[in-house]
């Protein structure tokens, strides 16, 4: 069953009837994901993509027993949507929305403390357990089922890694897109920990980027708890300091959050660090043979 989501997960879509919500919910359903309904305030009682629409997350949970929510709500309202899902008791909230103000996420992070809700994202491609459930915007066909887990701050770079893994004769258990914002719900270490403890995952690919200290924190945890190979890559080795590289969190602030500094500590903690993104798949295949 890998981690976070599987065939049994009951998923609702917040921002269900919007353009993004409609498009990606359709793709998720086509993949075989168990989408049980959606939420759009004011459209409760109607039906969309042959699934019921609710006014509130609480209504949706009551009627469908949903335990996972994916959010496609615009940035100005996304923080509210996350807190609504947590209040309704949703166990896993995946927030795809890009562009949420940082101070909103400061509040969300505080709000979630002490609740049983895990947040993935925001500004992420979502989570996919290959062959079981796609709770995200990633192209499902790339993720052939297998026993390699992926943790990544980036969308297309995750697809690239998954594709290389498959071409190396392996497959994916669960890929977790944790998001590229400065404040995210599930940091690298927690996502790696889930996969390290998963009996259906044999190896972990950890993809980070410049900015922040999450990779270093994960690396130190891995050093103490490693039971399977971890291959690491950090994007932004050529990024200049002080400039934001697309992702809100991808900015070099000091000497500790450069790609070089992160790669160094990762290598010291027993991670197989690759310099080129073209080497991720083959390095994992080699690491598994050791």
């Amino acid at each position: 069953m890998a981690v976070l989501v599987n065939k049994q997960s009951k998923i609702i879509v917040q921002g269900f009837t919007g353009t993004e919500g409609t498009f990606h919910a359709t793709q998720m359903i086509e993949y075989g994901t168990n989408v049980v309904g959606g939420v759009t305030p004011g459209k409760g009682g109607s039906s969309h993509l042959d699934k019921p629409v609710f006014n509130t997350v609480a209504d949706a949970v009551k009627s469908t027993g949903a335990d996972v929510s994916i959010i496609f709500v615009p940035p100005a309202f996304a923080a509210d949507a996350i807190m609504e899902a947590a209040e309704a008791g949703i166990a896993l909230v995946v927030c795809i929305t890009e562009g949420i103000p940082v101070q909103d996420m400061v509040k969300v992070k505080n709000y979630l403390q002490g609740t049983k809700t895990r947040l993935i994202g925001p500004n992420c491609p979502g989570v996919i357990t290959a062959g079981e459930a796609k709770v995200g915007i990633m192209p499902g066909f790339i993720f052939k089922p297998g026993r390699i887990g992926i943790v990544s701050k980036s969308g297309t770079l995750t697809y690239e890694a998954a594709d290389q893994v498959v071409k190396a004769g392996l497959g994916i258990s669960t890929a977790i897109g944790i998001g590229g914002d400065p404040i995210i719900g599930t940091p690298t270490k927690e996502a790696v920990e889930l996969l390290m403890n998963d009996p259906e995952t044999d190896g972990i690919i950890m993809i980070g980027e410049i900015g922040g200290s999450m990779e270093a924190e994960a690396a130190r945890w891995i050093k103490e708890n490693k039971t399977k190979p971890v291959v690491g890559f950090i994007a932004g080795q050529t990024a200049p300091p002080g400039r934001r590289m697309g992702h809100a969190g991808a900015i070099i602030g000091g000497a500790d959050d450069t790609a070089a500094a992160k790669m160094k500590i990762m290598a010291e903690c027993g991670i197989d660090v690759v310099a080129s993104p073209a080497d991720i798949g083959k390095t994992m295949a080699e690491a598994l043979k050791k």
Binding site: L157, G180, M245
Partner: peptide, 9 residues
């Protein structure tokens, strides 16, 4: 963005 940085590298 991530793939763009990786491509630069």
């Amino acid at each position: 963005a991530g793939l763009a940085m990786a491509t630069m590298d």
